[in-house]
Design a protein around this nucleic acid. Structure first.
Length: 271
DNA sequence: AAGTGGACCTGCTAGC
DNA sequence: TGCTAGCAGGTCCACT
């Protein structure tokens, strides 16, 4: 589910309200991707700092360290005053004096992991090796070109790998490649500098547009207030196999790369 | 180092 | 109506 826009929309929807709150209880549901890494009760009475994001991870600072959270494929966070009984898929509650932050994640690919800091423990290991942030000025066409030059995998897979640029998942990688007019099957080392400039701009613009629209709600994404996103209504290719390209009318094609669906317009996107 | 495929887990839908 | 196969927004890990 959540790519960078959804994670950032989520962060913005509860970060300010939880800042300064004090933890009063922690409830765990079924196991997530990794064990919490600390005694849940040890978090009680600690105050919450300013929530930040790196790639698709959120970092919730506490006094003894912090919680690194990931929404996986199906996770979402809600922050509310009276959350009610935990449901079947509610696997983590951080109860505070200002409300409860609840992770709902049916598939349980998500994670909540305690670390002494972002720079140590499991958090450091998970954050190591991540590529540049898409809105970082360092993410330029020249940077992208230099990184892609060393790879032979299809450019779509290079975007998804997360070690060049972070944030674009399956939806936005497809959409950015469409916006840049690049065939997702193109070998990374054959994308010219000129087209890398277009692609870097397309990644940035696509993610920014999605952010402005509150992300994409395909089935169940909601921000911490329960608001759905609207980017999916503007998708040019994602999930549109067989439908006509909004730009040229050619049927959108579906192709499998790295065991995942890629959607593209064979006319608008060229190798 | 880079590339490949499997693993994790649940729910929904299309098709027979 | 009921079963099954296939698909889903991520990314870690082992192996070549």
């Amino acid at each position: 589910m959540p790519e960078l826009p959804e994670v950032e929309v989520t962060r913005r929807s509860f970060g300010e309200r939880i800042h300064g709150a004090r933890v009063t209880a922690v409830r765990l549901g079924k196991p997530l991707r990794w064990p919490l890494g600390c005694e849940p009760h040890s978090l009680v009475a600690q105050s919450v700092g300013e929530v930040s994001r790196r790639a698709k991870y959120l970092w919730l600072p506490l006094e003894s360290g912090g919680l690194l959270m990931h929404l996986g494929m199906s996770g979402s966070l809600a922050f509310c005053d009276a959350p009610g009984e935990a449901g079947l898929h509610d696997h983590f509650d951080l109860v505070t004096d200002r409300g409860t932050l609840r992770l709902t994640d049916p598939r349980r690919f998500g994670a909540v992991v305690w670390s002494p800091s972002r720079e140590s423990g499991l958090a450091a290991k998970l954050l190591a090796g991540l590529g540049v942030e898409p809105f970082d000025p360092a993410f330029t066409g020249a940077y992208l070109h230099a990184a892609l030059r060393r790879r032979r995998v299809a450019v779509k897979l290079a975007l998804l790998s997360g070690d060049i640029v972070v944030g674009a998942g399956n939806i936005y990688a497809c959409e950015a490649l469409f916006a840049a007019g690049i065939d997702p099957r193109t070998r990374s080392d054959r994308v010219s500098l000129r087209r890398c400039e277009l692609l870097a701009a397309a990644v940035r613009d696509t993610l920014a547009r999605a952010l402005a629209l509150g992300g994409s709600t395909l089935r169940d994404f909601r921000d911490a207030h329960g608001m759905a996103g609207e980017f999916q209504l503007e998708a040019q290719v994602y999930g549109r196999a067989g439908q006509s390209c909004r730009a040229c009318g050619t049927p959108i094609r579906r192709w499998v790369q790295g065991q995942r669906s890629t959607f593209f317009c064979p006319t608008c996107q060229r190798r």
